[in-house]
Amino acid sequence: MNAITRIFALLKKDLLLELRQQYTFYGVLLYIASTVFVLYLAIQQPETDVWNGLFWMIQLFICVNAVAKSFLQESRGRMLYFYTIAGPGNFIIAKLLYNLIIMLIMSLVSLGLFILMIGNPLINFFHFLGIVSLGSVSLSLVFTMLAAIAAKAQQQASLMAIMGFPIIIPQLLLLMRISKAGFGETFKETALSDMIWLLSGLDLLVIIMAIILFPFLWKD
C-alpha cells in the first residue's frame, strides 16, 4: 500500500467509527445548538460586530470540543498497531483530514443556526461562507496538532485551551478582520487577498510542522 491509500484507509476508519458511534457528531451538534440557543435568549439580535465576535468565539469552542477527543479514543495498543502498519506521517495526515471534515460540517451547521436564531446581518453571504470554510480549516489544523501534544499530558481539555488560545489569536484576529467583507465592508484593493494568502500560508505551515513534529510525539 502506498501512502495515499494508507491515509484514506485511516480516514475511512475514523469516519466509519464516527458513523457507527455517532457520539462526537451529535454531542458537538447538541453543544452548538444549546450554545446558540442560550446566546439567542441572552442577546436576541445583536449588532454586526457583536455577531461577528460571538460567531468566531463559538467556532473556537466548538473546535476545542470537536477535536479534543480525537487522540483520546486511541488506546496505547492501537496506536502501536497503527504505527507499525501506517507510520506517524500518514496517521497525522489522516487525523488532520478527519478533523477538517468534522469541523467544516460543524462550522456550516453553526452558521446556519446563527442565521436562524441570532439574525442575519450578512450582506455578502458567499464571501462569508468562504471565510467560514477557511477559518474552520485553520482552526481544525492548529487544534489537531495541539490535541496530539495535549494527549501526551494530563488534564487534556484545559491544557488545550491554555496552549491553543494564544497560538490561535493571530489567526482569529485575521479571520474576524476579513469577515467584515461579508458585512459589506470594502477593503483596500490587495488587503483582503493578502490576508487570505497569509491564512492559507499559515495552514500550510501547520500541516508541514505537524508532519515533521508528530513522529517525535508518537515515540514512547
Partner: peptide, 27 residues
C-alpha cells in the same frame, strides 16, 4: 517525555508566533 513534548510545543509555537510578530503587524 516532558522534555520531548516540551520541545515539540516550543518549535510549533515559535513557528506560529513568527508570522504573528513579523507579518501581521505590517498589515
Amino acid at each position: 517525555k516532558r522534555a520531548r513534548v516540551g520541545a515539540v510545543y516550543n518549535i510549533f509555537a515559535f513557528a506560529m508566533l513568527l508570522p504573528a510578530l513579523w507579518i501581521i503587524p505590517r498589515m
